[in-house]
Amino acid sequence: MTAWLRERMVLLLGLGVLAYTFVPIAVVVLMSFNEPAARNVYSFDGFTLHNWANICEDAAMCEALGLSLRIGFLATLVATVLGTLAGFALVRHDFAGRSSANLLIFLPMAAPEIVLGSSLLTLFVAAGASGLLGFWTILIAHIMFCLSFVVVTVRSRLAGLDDTLEQAAADLYATPAQTFWRVTFPLVLPGILGAALLSFSLSFDDFIITNLNSGNETTFPMYVWGAYRVGVPMQVNVIGTIMLLFSLAVVVTGELVSRRRRRALV
């Protein structure tokens, strides 16, 4: 018995930590079915599907959600494209200032969000654009902080790519363009998709930077922030649960697809 325990001690402890990270998640899921007795009482008073059936009961919440989705989608798109190009440049090309470029990519990740947000705000104010704070400034900020994460993800995927594969393609009569589209790109694609998923969740989740640069717009995290004093509607938990399920589905599907590819026809 002790031997069994000693053998599995680390695993059990690890699973314990994992379980701890799921306690708040479990509460979120649970509360999405809650029927609160009053608006700002946070106890589980009764089971209901009401919140799931009426997600947009509070129109402001859904408006904020829509904005977050739009920003998240656009920021992901732009950051993924620019970041992928930069990732290729950094791994596959030699140019003056390559190490400065690497530093430039690294720094935004080393800066606390509050610093990034206040810097941008002072720029927009100095440029006389404080009246224009809103959708576009949020988008600019989100692309900025997602960019570095995309570059880093794509860069490491590319660096891990065995370059003899590209040599083999060239050896087998593939022109540089064919080598790129038939060998390099398909092999880097999972990294790019991962980077996009990461971008989206960073963008969707950001509060600190957005709050400083949003003008009169309200994103989903800002809505939660604003609503929590008066009592957050239970639908917020529904959104949290949906986000969780959605991303789990994406990740698990991705993993299963790549496994099936590896194992097919065994």
Binding site: F22, M243, L244
Partner: peptide, 8 residues
């Protein structure tokens, strides 16, 4: 958990 909104 990282994918469930930070504030939530």
């Amino acid at each position: 958990p990282f994918f469930t909104s930070f504030l939530v």
